[in-house]
Write a protein that binds this DNA or RNA. Sequence first.
DNA 1: CGTAAATGGAACGTGCCGTGCCGTTATTTC
DNA 2: GAAATAACGGCACGGCACGTTCCATTTACG
Lengths: 196, 196
Amino acid sequence: MDKASQPRKSIGARRNPASADAIRKAAEAILREDGYAGFSIEAVARRARAGKPTIYRWWPSKAALLLEVYQGQKGNAAAPDTGSLEEDVFLFLRNLFGLWRETSAGNIFRSVLAEAQTDAAALDAVRAYRTERQAHTGRMMERAKMRGELRDDVDPALAAELIGSFALSHLLMDRLEDDPESLRKAARHLCGSWLK
Amino acid sequence: MDKASQPRKSIGARRNPASADAIRKAAEAILREDGYAGFSIEAVARRARAGKPTIYRWWPSKAALLLEVYQGQKGNAAAPDTGSLEEDVFLFLRNLFGLWRETSAGNIFRSVLAEAQTDAAALDAVRAYRTERQAHTGRMMERAKMRGELRDDVDPALAAELIGSFALSHLLMDRLEDDPESLRKAARHLCGSWLK
DNA sequence: CGTAAATGGAACGTGCCGTGCCGTTATTTC
DNA sequence: GAAATAACGGCACGGCACGTTCCATTTACG
């Protein structure tokens, strides 16, 4: 790619976007290729041909850089709208697992979760993201409710949380296998009790 | 505790159980008090008044020691048997969250999960543990099924997995708050759809 | 033109990793 | 009983990553 590029020099008394981009891209590539194990500031600096101080000038910590990559990359599987809740949930899981398997999103999310077990800021970030995502998934449930598909006492937010928990544990256990049968079954179990 | 204890000497050409115990206890104490962040072989050695080579002689890696502490400490919340599935699930979650909050089990499990995002052996171990635990929880579901409380098409194993996923995500997000209301609600949603 | 600020590079101190080596201790083997 | 074996704690090492400091260089801004 960027072969015999000279080391980037300063462009004056302001941040060099080329450096920032190179750093973000290097971090993302390392997470995609090697996962969290290979992710270190030194490795990112080497790969980005940047100086460590340049990284630390703009990101206060390893966790901060990780979070920025994470924020800028959330693939955000869409919540389908087929008119059938069970089908929506099935497709949602299928899309999400596929996204996690085939892009760096899965590795990045796993990394942030690992970091969150040590770093409080990472925990806050992952909580906020999860809240936002579940609100999104929750809309899938609300649509079903408006269609009259759901029982009145079902809480869309809690339902979304159960779906999210199922997906999360599969990600963490590295069980994102593409098995339509079992995902279908999971969707049925997740929905079965909520339908009227 | 062990105040002015001399450094443990060798007891001859065999493993010194006192050293092994001190190492295990130090590791557990560090995980309980400081969590995964403070867990290092050097810290364990210092606290156990042991030499690093002694640790590495018996545990091939940091992950191995972590896993042994984990194995020897699984609090294993019991699966209640009240005659009502929803009540069983509620009590199970309540017990499990309490155990995770009030003993070192929660911190240890979180640590192993973090390690599992980097170390394949840790991932295997946590998968095996999860399988075993869900088989146990699954018996709770099977009892309900025998009582005729469950629909015939409900898979006890999958149901147990959904319950476990819910608990796991709360542990990871550090949301083990003792809120009977929300746990009750979760139990109801988890069970609602399975009941006849 | 001079100041200010960002750049990459080199070097530093700290901490942890995992592994040697050491003298000491005591069991096991001959 | 003597010698070989092996575990013990300690020390020191090379390696790596962390986060920081200093540096010469480059360029925008006043």
